Simulated assay, not measured.
Amino acid sequence: MLAGVAGAAAPAATSKDPLAGRIAGAAVDCVDQSQLGGPDIVDNRTILYRQSLKRIWRNDLPAACPGLRPQTLLVVEIWGSRLCSNDRFQARDRDTIIPGPYCRLGKFTPYDLPGK
């Protein structure tokens, strides 16, 4: 087991929807963690990971995660090199070391820019 710490660089909830104009593909259970940027936390049920300029992965959690909001840190339990649905994580405020409850990732849906 590997534990990873990641934090949102900037709030994902802005006036511009990062998925606007993108086409959703079929959801998958796992994605290669080494190719992902982020996470960008949208709300307590939605996390975005940028793979490239063309692709953004949206993860819809199976249940709301208490304490998950923009600017929180994620402590993710990574098994191998991929993030998968049902992998556990904890949301932590930047100002405290007290961890939040365990939450689970959902399926990953790719959103791609059309064309090229």
Rank of each mutant, 00 (worst) to 15 (best):
residue 1 M to C: 15
residue 72 T to P: 04
residue 100 G to R: 03
residue 10 A to P: 03
residue 84 C to K: 01
residue 54 K to E: 12
residue 56 I to R: 01
residue 95 D to V: 03
residue 102 Y to E: 12
residue 103 C to S: 03
residue 15 S to L: 14
residue 70 P to N: 09
residue 58 R to L: 00
residue 61 L to Q: 03
residue 112 D to T: 04
residue 109 T to I: 04
residue 82 R to F: 07
residue 101 P to V: 05
residue 69 R to Y: 04
residue 55 R to P: 09
residue 110 P to F: 00
residue 35 Q to E: 12
residue 116 K to P: 12
residue 37 G to Y: 08
residue 7 G to C: 11
residue 43 D to R: 07
residue 41 I to W: 01
residue 30 C to P: 10
residue 91 A to P: 10
residue 45 R to G: 09
residue 73 L to M: 13
residue 3 A to Y: 15
residue 68 L to W: 05
residue 87 D to L: 02
residue 83 L to G: 08
residue 75 V to A: 14
residue 89 F to T: 05
residue 58 R to K: 11
residue 15 S to C: 14
residue 6 A to V: 13
residue 80 G to I: 05
residue 47 I to K: 06
residue 28 V to S: 11
residue 111 Y to S: 02
residue 48 L to G: 10
residue 8 A to Y: 09
residue 50 R to T: 11
residue 44 N to K: 07
residue 58 R to A: 00
residue 83 L to Q: 07
residue 83 L to E: 08
residue 84 C to A: 10
residue 107 K to Y: 04
residue 5 V to Q: 14
residue 47 I to W: 01
residue 109 T to L: 09
residue 58 R to H: 01
residue 5 V to S: 14
residue 1 M to I: 14
residue 82 R to K: 12
residue 61 L to N: 00
residue 100 G to D: 03
residue 4 G to I: 15
residue 23 I to K: 13
residue 36 L to F: 01
residue 70 P to A: 02
residue 65 C to S: 04
residue 90 Q to P: 05
residue 37 G to F: 01
residue 1 M to T: 15
residue 76 V to M: 09
residue 3 A to K: 15
residue 24 A to T: 10
residue 71 Q to M: 14
residue 18 P to S: 06
residue 107 K to R: 11
residue 115 G to W: 02
residue 22 R to A: 09
residue 51 Q to T: 04
residue 1 M to P: 15
residue 93 D to C: 05
residue 55 R to S: 07
residue 18 P to D: 00
residue 61 L to R: 01
residue 81 S to D: 15
residue 27 A to H: 07
residue 74 L to K: 08
residue 56 I to M: 00
residue 96 T to C: 10
residue 6 A to H: 12
residue 73 L to P: 10
residue 42 V to Y: 10
residue 11 P to F: 11
residue 82 R to C: 08
residue 93 D to I: 06
residue 103 C to T: 00
residue 113 L to S: 09
residue 4 G to Q: 15
residue 86 N to E: 11
residue 109 T to A: 11
residue 11 P to M: 13
residue 19 L to Q: 02
residue 73 L to Y: 09
residue 49 Y to D: 03
residue 29 D to A: 13
residue 109 T to H: 03
residue 91 A to T: 01
residue 67 G to F: 04
residue 9 A to N: 14
residue 95 D to F: 10
residue 105 L to P: 02
residue 55 R to E: 06
residue 21 G to W: 02
residue 63 A to Y: 04
residue 9 A to Q: 14
residue 54 K to A: 12
residue 58 R to F: 00
residue 59 N to A: 03
residue 49 Y to T: 02
residue 93 D to E: 11
